[in-house]
Design a protein around this nucleic acid. Sequence first.
DNA 1: GTGTACATGTAATCCGTTACATGATTCC
DNA 2: GGAATCATGTAACGGATTACATGTACAC
Lengths: 199, 199
Amino acid sequence: MDETTEGAPEPLPGLPATSWAVLGLLSFGRELSGYDLKKWSDRSLRLFYWSPSFSQIYSELKRLEKTGYATSRLVAPESGTRDKRVYRITDEGLTAVRTWARTAPLDPPVLKHGPMLRLWLGHLLEPDRMREILAGHREYAEGMRLRAEADVADAGADETWAYPRLTLTWAERYYAAERDLADAMLADIERLERERPGD
Amino acid sequence: MDETTEGAPEPLPGLPATSWAVLGLLSFGRELSGYDLKKWSDRSLRLFYWSPSFSQIYSELKRLEKTGYATSRLVAPESGTRDKRVYRITDEGLTAVRTWARTAPLDPPVLKHGPMLRLWLGHLLEPDRMREILAGHREYAEGMRLRAEADVADAGADETWAYPRLTLTWAERYYAAERDLADAMLADIERLERERPGD
DNA sequence: GTGTACATGTAATCCGTTACATGATTCC
DNA sequence: GGAATCATGTAACGGATTACATGTACAC
C-alpha cells in the first residue's frame, strides 16, 4: 500500500466520502454557493449516490475551507436576494480530490433496499399489500429513469461533461433494470400465489 | 409516548429501520443469539439491505427487549462455549413488526454507489484507472451474484422460506444487472476514448 | 398579505461504526 | 503455546438528519 508516486506522499486527511463528493462538485471549476451545490447535487449525485442535506453541505464547505481545499468570498446582492457566499476549489483541493479519485480504496456500493426488506418479510404481509409495495417501487424506479433520461438529453455534447453524462446513462439503465426487476418479482409473486395450495 | 392500549391504532414507536430488520429476523420464530443474528444477517439482509455491526445488533436487541418486542434467556454452556443469551420474539413484537411491514410508508431505496461517484469524476482519472475501478466493481457484483445464486440453491422448497427465497432470486438478478451495467459502461468508456481527438 | 424561492446557519439528536475489553474453547 | 472461533458487551466518536431561526425578494 505504498503510493510513492504523485509528488506528495502526505496521506490525505481522512475525509469522509461526502466531503470528496462536495469537493468533486467544485472540481468542475465553477464558483458556487452552498445553495447551488445542494440543488445541483439533487439533480446529479442523487441518481447514484445521495444528496446531503443543506446543513451538511454548509458544514462540509466550512471544513473544506479550513483544510485549504476551497476558498470563499461574499458576493454582494447586486439585484435581489441577499448576501451570498460562493466557493471555489483551490489548487491543493484539486490535487487532493484527484489523488483521492485515483488512489482511494474502492469500497462496495451501499444498498439499503427498503422495499426488498418488506418483501423479505412476506410471511407478514397480505399479497395485495405486497403487490402495492412492488408497484410503488416500480413507479419510483421509472420516475428516476425518466429524470436520468431527460438529464442525458439536456447535457450537451461538451467534452467537460462527458463523464457526468456517462454516469447519467448508467443511471438510466440502472433504474430501467430496477423497474424490470420489480416487474419480474411481481410475476414471481403471482406465480407463487397461484401455486399455493388453496388459501 | 403513552402506551395505553394494545391492538388499537397506536402509532408504533418510531423505531429505526434497523430495529425492524432485527425484529424481522426474529419473526421467523427461531430463538437466536446476537451472534447468530449477525451471521444470519450477513448472509441474508446483506444482499439487499445491509448488515449491522455486532455492537449494534446487541444494542438493538436490548432496545427490543425494553420495548417488550422480544424476550431473552440465558442458556447454560452445556458443552463448550460460554454463556449465551438467546432472544425470542413476543406476541406484541410479532404484531408490531407485522403492522410495520403492512403500514409503514415506503421510502425509496438508498444507494451510495462509490464506483459511480469515482467515474462521475472521470475528468480527474486516467482511463486505465477508470477501467480498473469498473473491473473491480464488476468482480464485486459477480461475487455477490454467485453468493445469491448459491443461497437460492441452498434454500429448500419449504413454504416458510418462500419470500426470503424470492428476495434471494431478486438479488441474484440485481447483481447480474450490476455486472452487465459495468460491462456496458466499460464499453462506453472504450468508445469515448476511441472517439476522443488524439490524446 | 400570503406563499414560495432564495439563502445561511445552529442545536439537538440519533444512527452506526471502530476500537477496545474480556474470556472460554478448540485446533494445530 | 498460539491462533481462530465463539460470544458479549462498553466507550468514544463521527456522520448526517431534523427542527429551528432568520431574513429578503417576488409573484399572485
